[in-house]
Design a protein around this nucleic acid. Structure first.
Length: 318
DNA sequence: CGCTTTTGACCAGCGC
DNA sequence: GCGCTGGTCAAAAGCG
């Protein structure tokens, strides 16, 4: 069984997901390395060619009675997310205060606003800023924060996740009638971002992508003592804090993707991200959501996570 | 008045 | 080099 990284080297992700190999001798689990397709939700939802895959994957996941969602695209993000290096995100914890992410912003230039005296100087300043930005960007290639994405079946676009977000952009998405919205955490010095978009193959599904790590506790959520649950679930507290899963009002269910080959995909993927070194100990919303997902199942069951994440018929195959 | 949302413009990266 | 696309900025408008 190959790992994702091993396979990634030789194939474009589209080939990998859409290509002949899916019809070859490989089983679905073998094919993905851990039982899940490696193609990102975004690709599968936004790329026309991937539509087929998307539907196929929905079926495989059992969309009719989906289990718990969550989809870790953290580092081995497929082609579409353009991670510089697969190792980066795993070995480097998210660096919320890094200026590299927003290097395109004029605020990032020298860290202070540009004063304008008159038109001439304004132009000069703009020229300076542009050249400085170029130099900065060529010297320091933009680094992406690790990403964590999941699909949520919901009627509302913006799901409450315990944090406050400010919308800073909206873009039309190619091959999708639904725009993508860009949000940033409103907390100062916290540069966590998230993107929201609807899956055009199923408008009832919202794809949420978190990027970065919160440097502060959730401003809206109380933090119940659920440490035991977290430990038993194998989820690092920091990871839970870094990527709080929305608490949705209208959600019926979630999908889960993750891209590693471990037996316990969710736990391994999150812990391997190595988040939470400076984050809050636990974010309740994440655990809260897990409760919603499990709906009656005990969180402390040994295989509870796997059950949440992997369709039962796939578990039987293992 | 302060904060959030909207939206057009700009920029970088990528593929051809 | 050019065009396309994703991501971000920032001014204006909206809202409580």
């Amino acid at each position: 069984m190959h790992t994702f990284m091993e396979r990634k080297e030789g194939l474009k992700i589209e080939d990998y997901v859409m290509g002949n190999s899916i019809n070859s001798n490989s089983s679905f689990c073998d094919y993905t390395g851990n039982g899940f397709p490696l193609q990102s939700v975004f690709d599968s939802c936004s790329e026309e060619d991937n539509n087929k895959f998307s539907l196929g994957f929905m079926e495989l996941l059992g969309v009719q009675d989906f289990t718990c969602p969550l989809f870790d695209v953290a580092q081995q993000v497929p082609v579409s997310t353009k991670m510089e290096s697969p190792e980066q995100g795993f070995n480097l914890p998210a660096t919320p205060n890094s200026s590299s992410v927003s290097s395109g912003s004029s605020e990032a230039v020298n860290g202070e606003p540009v004063k304008v005296e008159d038109d001439q100087e304004e132009e000069d300043d703009q020229q300076k800023n542009k050249t400085q930005l170029k130099v900065k960007k060529t010297n320091q290639k933009r680094q992406r924060e690790p990403r964590f994405a999941f699909m949520t079946k919901s009627e509302v676009d913006h799901l409450e996740d315990g944090y406050r977000w400010r919308k800073y952009g909206q873009k039309a998405v190619k091959n999708s009638p639904f725009p993508r919205s860009y949000y940033r955490c409103t907390s100062t010095s916290c540069n966590v971002k998230k993107r929201l978009e609807r899956c055009f193959t199923d408008p009832s599904i919202v794809v949420t992508t978190y990027e970065g790590q919160h440097t502060h506790p959730s401003p809206l959520m109380p933090r119940p003592n659920l440490v035991g649950s977290t430990i038993n679930s194998g989820i690092s507290a920091g990871a839970a804090a870094a990527f709080s899963v929305p608490m949705q009002r209208n959600t019926q269910s979630h999908y889960y993707y993750q891209q590693q080959q471990h037996q316990h995909p969710f736990a391994n993927s999150l812990s391997s991200l190595n988040f939470g070194h400076n984050g809050p100990s636990i974010d309740s919303s994440f655990l809260h959501e897990r409760r919603l997902c499990t709906s009656g199942q005990s969180l402390l069951k040994d295989h509870g996570l796997l059950q949440d994440i992997i369709p039962s018929h796939m578990l039987k195959e293992e």
